[in-house]
Structure formats: C-alpha cells, structure tokens
Amino acid sequence: MPDLFQQHSPLVQIDFGELQDNAPTIEETPFLGYLNLRGKTSNMAFVAAVLKVLGVEPPTTANTMVESGDYRIYWLGPDEWLVITPTGQAGKVQSELNAELKDVFSSIVDNSSGLTLLKITGENATKLLNRDCPLDLHPWVFKPGQCAQTRFAKAGMTIAPLRDGSGFEIIIRRSFADYIGLWMQDACVEFE
C-alpha cells in the first residue's frame, strides 16, 4: 500500500472550521475507498459473488443502501452500485471481486480518488443542503437506509441521511469538490 501521507484531499484549499455560529458542521471524511460495481442481478453468479466478498447482496431497491461490516453499498442504478470501503482497502476488495467475477459479466472500477465524502450535521443541515438541492430531505420522506443521486447547486452529489438523524452524508466528485465547498461556505453566511 502506498504511503497514505502522500495523499491530498480535493478539499485541501477549503477550511470548514471557521463557519458561522449557527451554521451546520461540515466535515470531510477523506480517502475512503470507492468502487463502482456493475453487474446484472438477474445473474445469480453475480449476486452470489458480491455476497461472498462483501457479505451482503447488492440492493435491488432503487435509492437504498445497505451496510455490511465496514462496507456500505449504495444503489446507483439498476445495474450499478457504489461500494464504500475503509481507507486503503479498495484495492483488496477490488481484487477479491475481480477474482470471484472473472467469468461473470461485471465491472469493478476503482474510483477512490474520484470521490470524497462530507458529513453535514446540525440543526441547519437540511436548510443548507436545500439551498440548492431540489430533493425533499424531510425525515418523513428521506429516511436512513435511503440514498439518492441528485444535484447540489450545479454539481452532482449522492446523498444519504445519517442513521442517528443528525444530518446527511454527501458524496461528491473530486473536481467539483472545491466549487461545492466554496458554495457551501458562501451559503453559510445566512447562519450568522
């Protein structure tokens, strides 16, 4: 494994530490492993291989996510999932999946450096996100276990409510992260 200290987060130029008093807390969890998993759930071999390596079948209900040990699997499409692993484990999981899925129509692509994760928590978390996310984030509608791909301002994001109800995690693309960070900092002026 390469030296983790040589990594730089895409948010290296953004400081979320000095936000307004009533602003939600914005915290990056950098350097997680992200695998883009493709396959057909109609193919039992695919489902079985995923179950074997990740300990859980890929969710088939749209806009839901499952957890299994250290892994989380987000539904992204009818044949597409995002597997989140702890830091530095994406390569290992990718190899295991590749081995199990050698003869099965599937694709496992490492996108670990392509994404990063932000936790947005606190009283005004929904308010901040709904500043320019068109999705209804109300807890009656968007519950733990659900996830969605949508947009924030003019960039895409994958969002899920946190289990403890304290807020949301959002997964954003590396190249848009700085823009989203600046947009959120600017939006927080409201929360003086």
């Binding site: 749209a62 806009n63 499409g77 009818p78 068109p134 999705l135 969605a148 791909q149 949508t150 947009r151």
Partner: peptide
C-alpha cells in the same frame, strides 16, 4: 422509472 419523481433539473 427507476428513481421515482424528480425535479426536471436532474
């Protein structure tokens, strides 16, 4: 048909 009702901007 997969994700349900969403805003046109998506």
């Amino acid at each position: 048909p997969y994700c349900g009702e969403r805003d046109e901007t998506e």
